[in-house]
Nucleic acid binder design. Structure first.
Lengths: 108, 108
DNA sequence: TTTTCATATAACTGTTCGGTTATATAAAAT
DNA sequence: ATTTTATATAACCGAACAGTTATATGAAAA
């Protein structure tokens, strides 16, 4: 079970995810967007991969990373549910209702 | 600025918060609910205090802890917003709209 | 084929974390 | 006044993190 807190608990990783939201990116592109070393970025990518928040694809000498929408969705709901309960947040149930009522179980 | 990921990133701390949801608790009560030592619990409480997720009150020799609803609410929205954006989740904006439209800025 | 480029990996550093045990302190109960 | 109880604090441990530098590997370009 993916640990979102671990995955999102670091601001560099959140930035990486924001980049990937714009579309798949090469490791090189990601490295260039930050001031830290390539091995440091690779470690962040590995953590995101471990937690299944992103996926990796090979293309020649490149590695291409993209957001794993599925996992994020599940994680999102878990957190929503947990914190919502702590807050007695009626809107969590509203949200669940709206989703179930209006959305298909569309993949990815 | 409170770091929700840090605060909620540990399952013991999430359990503590679930307990506190039922009402304010004494440190002793919290310690008794877990299998770990008093100093370990105190460290968790300190982290929750640092991140302003809970508050501490003195009553004689007791320390009483309670959820800081405000901070949790803010933190909750940050996470919701961030992950929601990653997912292009329209329901995040719906939720914001409903909240702003229907809720007062009720204290704590 | 040699060089260059993208990525991987190893070894190291300093910090934080979650836990421990042992001990101190301060309030309450005896 | 002494003991008990609730909490605090210090010192320690091992693991995980975020970063570094140096080096290896493997694909593409020259």
């Amino acid at each position: 079970m993916p640990n979102v807190y671990r995955a999102l608990g670091d601001s560099t990783r959140r930035h990486i995810l924001s980049m990937l939201k714009q579309g798949s990116k090469t490791q090189k592109e990601i490295v260039e967007a930050f001031d830290i070393s390539q091995p440091a970025i690779k470690k962040h990518l590995n953590i995101l991969l471990e937690e299944r928040i992103i996926s990796e694809n090979l293309n020649g000498k490149y590695r291409i990373y993209s957001i794993n929408h599925n996992t994020l969705q599940i994680a999102y709901h878990e957190m929503l549910q947990y914190i919502g309960e702590l807050l007695d947040d009626q809107l969590v149930s509203l949200k669940n209702y709206v989703e179930k009522g209006e959305f298909r179980d569309e993949e990815n």
